[in-house]
Simulated scan of single mutants.
Amino acid sequence: MTQLEDLTDEQMERYARHLVLPEVEEDGQLRLLNSSVLVIGAGGLGSPLLLYLAAAGVGTIGIVDDDSVERSNLQRQIVHSEESLGTTKVASAQKRLQALNPDLRIVIHETRITADNAQEIIADYDLVADGCDTIATRYVLNDACFARKKTLVSAAILRFDGQITTIKAHEPGNNPCYRCLFGNDQPDGRDSCADVGVFGALAGTMGSLQAVEVIKELLGIGTSLSGRLMLYSALDAQFHSMNTRRDPACPVCGGVE
């Protein structure tokens, strides 16, 4: 994709509220327009995340999902609508994002991320955002992003609770990976949203937080969530942030100093 060097008049109008921020201004907006983000999952987390990345002007957005839209999705997956029922989530999301911001390039990957394809799919993107619904996929993404030296913004939700962190374990210092935080043994039989439910608006909260952290990483502003895990309890209306550390014995990132 050709790198933009100047904003058009229409872009100056569209991104006017960004341009007056000293932390963004025109250079920052151009950086966003020249950036690429891969979003894993066009579901509850992916929906607000994708909408805000498109609204913010991230120039290339990739979407990975192998599912189709069902009516039970619409309680939280706000990028889709009744007219999307039965269509693939990637096609539905692509149509909505292009309607929101036609300047962008939306690339769809109608597949599931696996250990066999993860590195190839993420290779062409600047940053990866994980909104998937399986723990096994999170481990695959963690390992692939480390191998490809890609920053990963990861979030998860269940019932009334959410969590989010940024992973850039390929960088030196205290930048732990997913395995450092949660170990190498993947739990079996973990409850899913289909089993125990999820509060619809919680997806909006956590997906929006993901968008904030993705955009901060692209712009290089603010304090990164790398080295911290942020927890949110919707029922208690409380955020809790805990410091995390790299595991020197981690089989993936333990050798990084």
Rank of each mutant, 00 (worst) to 15 (best):
G62R: 00
I78D: 12
N142R: 06
L50M: 15
V140E: 02
A156R: 10
I167R: 04
N101R: 07
E83F: 14
L74S: 06
R138Q: 02
G173L: 00
V39L: 07
G162A: 04
A54F: 12
V64E: 02
G46D: 04
G86F: 15
R105E: 08
D66S: 10
T114P: 10
G57E: 09
S68F: 12
D66M: 09
A169K: 11
D103G: 11
L38W: 10
A129W: 00
T111M: 05
P172L: 00
A129E: 02
V90P: 10
F160T: 13
G43S: 07
G162E: 04
N101V: 06
Q75V: 04
C132Q: 04
T151H: 06
T87P: 15
A56S: 08
N174P: 00
I63V: 09
A118I: 02
Q75A: 05
R105W: 05
R148S: 10
V39T: 13
I106V: 12
N174R: 02
R105S: 04
A93Q: 11
G162N: 04
R76Y: 12
K95R: 15
R105V: 04
A91V: 14
E120Q: 10
D116V: 12
S72G: 06
R138M: 02
R76P: 13
N73C: 09
A91H: 15
C145P: 03
P102N: 13
S154C: 05
H109N: 04
G41P: 08
R71M: 07
G59L: 04
S81N: 13
A42T: 07
F146K: 07
G46I: 02
N117M: 07
P102Q: 07
V140I: 06
I157H: 01
L53D: 14
E120V: 04
E70D: 08
G86W: 15
S84M: 15
I122T: 01
N117H: 05
N117K: 09
K89H: 07
A123S: 12
S81Q: 14
Q94W: 13
T134F: 00
I135D: 03
C145G: 07
N142H: 05
R71E: 06
A99G: 10
R96G: 00
A118T: 02
I106F: 05
I121R: 01
R112I: 03
V64M: 06
H80T: 10
S81E: 14
L45S: 12
A55K: 09
Q98S: 11
D116N: 14
A115G: 11
N117R: 06
G173K: 01
S81T: 14
I61F: 05
A136E: 08
D126L: 11
N174Q: 02
S47N: 15
L152E: 07
T114L: 02
R71G: 01
P48Q: 10
G131T: 02
A123Q: 10
V140F: 05
S68E: 11
L51C: 15
I122F: 03
H80C: 12
S92C: 13
A147S: 13
V79R: 12
A169W: 07
N175I: 01
D143V: 03
T60G: 03
Q98L: 12
D65C: 10
A123F: 08
V79W: 11
Y52Q: 14
Q98P: 01
I135H: 11
D66K: 08
A147H: 13
D66H: 09
Y52I: 13
T87I: 15
A147M: 14
I78L: 13
R76C: 07
A93D: 06
I157P: 02
H80W: 12
G173A: 00
E70Q: 09
Q163Y: 09
N101L: 08
L85Y: 14
V107W: 00
